[in-house]
């Protein structure tokens, strides 16, 4: 049963890690918009890099 003394602290560390990751994600607005990101993979790579200004 001594393995428990290694495994349980390990699992708790993992848990804390996951918690920190989630807190980070929430604080950085990763859950703000669940609609838009699913469209992004559909886009083709642009032929020319967007410049933001209409070319003359």
């Amino acid at each position: 049963m001594n393995i428990l003394l290694v495994m349980i602290p390990l699992s708790i560390l993992l848990l804390i890690g996951a918690g920190i990751a989630f807190f980070w994600a929430v604080d950085h607005d990763q859950f703000e918009d669940m609609e838009t990101p699913r469209l992004l993979p559909l886009e083709d790579a642009p032929d020319t890099p967007p410049t933001g200004e209409p070319p003359p």
Partner: peptide, 16 residues
């Protein structure tokens, strides 16, 4: 289109 404007650091759009 907004992301391409010089000086714009980030754009977040929420459709809902």
């Amino acid at each position: 289109s907004l992301g391409g404007v010089p000086g714009v650091a980030s754009v977040q759009v929420n459709a809902a």
